[in-house]
Computed example of a mutant assay.
Amino acid sequence: MQTNLPLADELAALTVRIADLLLTHETVDEAVSALAHALKEAIPGTRGAGVSLMDTRGRRISTASTDPDVMQADQLQYDLRQGPCLTAWAQQATVTVGDSRTDHRWPAWSRAIADLPLRSVVSTPLSTPDGAIGALKVYSPIPDGIDPKAIRLIELLARPAALMLANAQARDAAERLSDGLIGALGARDAIGTATGIIMERLHVSRDQALATLISASRRRNEPLHQLAQDIIGGGEL
């Protein structure tokens, strides 16, 4: 990406690229990974970048890092429950660390990453109208290694990226719900069919056949829908 463009043009170019990446990946995890790598490429001189999506309690639901050092630094934040990424998410505000060795806001985390080649970091929330769904962060190997223009670019990019990731999350949730409903309907139909087979075999009412099926499921310690499929396939009670 060209870094000598005016900020507005640079942002527009990067937003289009990010939109293409996020909208063409099938899962949220893939989209998060694509965003992390695009961030690293867009900000010159970075050691790496990371993106985390979190639930309302700050627990990760999806995360991606471009480099092992970034992955370790991020993991330490979650293990220690402190760090710039969690603060950016909780406060819904950009957090900058000029030098991790002299910044004392998260002492345990700063000590834990002392041997990593990460000296400065910018983390900004992925904010939607309903609140922050996570945070993205960029690390540099030198103190004050991320200049103000890059910080502003990261902040401006975070909003459209957050909205696209929120849409991806909603799409994934809808697909999981759809799969679950299909599975539930399939199980219901199988149980109904197996009940009809038992009615024919034993010459009993529907209620009696269903009770027999449930009793056999408990006795055999076999899920009801699975036993129903066995009976449909010619299996015995």
Rank of each mutant, 00 (worst) to 15 (best):
V51N: 03
L136E: 07
D130W: 07
A64E: 02
L39H: 06
E200M: 07
A211T: 13
N4M: 08
L157V: 10
I214T: 14
A38D: 06
P107E: 01
I197P: 04
A12Y: 05
D20V: 07
T3P: 04
N221H: 13
A187W: 03
L136M: 15
D29T: 14
A42L: 07
H203N: 12
E26S: 12
V32Y: 05
V204M: 11
Y78I: 06
T195V: 02
D74L: 14
V97A: 08
T102W: 09
L116K: 00
T102S: 15
P117K: 10
D147K: 07
L227N: 02
K40Y: 07
K149Q: 12
T128D: 08
A64I: 10
S127R: 14
G98W: 00
S127L: 15
V16Y: 08
S205A: 01
V32E: 10
A36H: 04
S215M: 02
T193E: 14
G50N: 10
G192N: 14
M199Q: 15
D20H: 12
D147N: 10
T195E: 01
P44I: 07
T3M: 06
P84R: 13
P125Y: 01
V204K: 02
Q75L: 10
K137P: 03
T87K: 07
M199K: 14
L153I: 00
L227E: 03
R176V: 11
A170P: 04
V51C: 12
D69G: 06
A162Q: 09
A88T: 03
Y139D: 15
T27I: 06
A170C: 04
Q208D: 15
M164G: 05
G83R: 02
G145K: 10
M164S: 06
S62K: 04
G50H: 04
M71D: 15
R105L: 02
R218T: 13
G235K: 04
T212P: 02
A194V: 02
G145L: 09
L210I: 02
Q91N: 13
V16K: 09
L11G: 00
A114Y: 03
G186N: 13
L227H: 09
D189I: 03
G58W: 00
G234R: 01
V95Y: 11
V70D: 09
S205M: 03
Q82D: 04
E236K: 10
P141I: 11
A49Q: 00
Q229R: 15
I142N: 05
G45I: 10
P223H: 05
K149W: 02
Q169K: 06
S52F: 12
T46F: 04
